[in-house]
């Protein structure tokens, strides 16, 4: 199994992950190596096996509908890269 340079670029775009052009090849190689590892999974017949998403066979606990959080906007926005008038600023969003 191998991953092409263009597949790596597609994934990088989906993940909005900038990768240097000169590194694309090495990512393709590493990921292909990982995929090789993964193809071992096909050695095992898993027909009829229920996929396991959590280690515990538990169900979701529900929270009472009560307002418990008082928001300190100043504290949260002190760590933000760019804010104005209480809003987080980003480059213009075009719809």
């Amino acid at each position: 199994m191998s991953l092409t340079v263009s597949e790596v670029k597609d994934c990088a775009h989906l993940a909005r992950l900038g990768i240097e052009e000169r590194d694309v090849g090495s990512y393709a190689k590493d990921l292909s190596g990982m995929l090789d590892l993964m193809t071992q999974m096909n050695d095992l017949d898993t027909d009829g096996v229920e996929p396991m998403a959590h280690p515990m066979d538990q169900v979701q606990r529900l929270r009472a509908d009560v307002v418990t959080e008082q928001v300190d906007r100043e504290k949260f926005q002190a760590i933000a890269p760019q804010v104005e008038a209480g809003l987080y600023l980003v480059p213009k969003v075009i719809e």
Binding site: R63, D65, V67, V71, R73, F76, Q77, G86, Y88
Partner: peptide, 26 residues
């Protein structure tokens, strides 16, 4: 609901921007 689906912040409409966005909502 009074509070959000996954956090205890208020859902009331019309508050000052980002004053009802708690750590979970952010």
């Amino acid at each position: 609901t009074k509070s959000k689906i996954f956090s205890g912040a208020s859902t009331a409409y019309g508050a000052e921007p980002n004053t009802q966005a708690c750590a979970v909502d952010l």
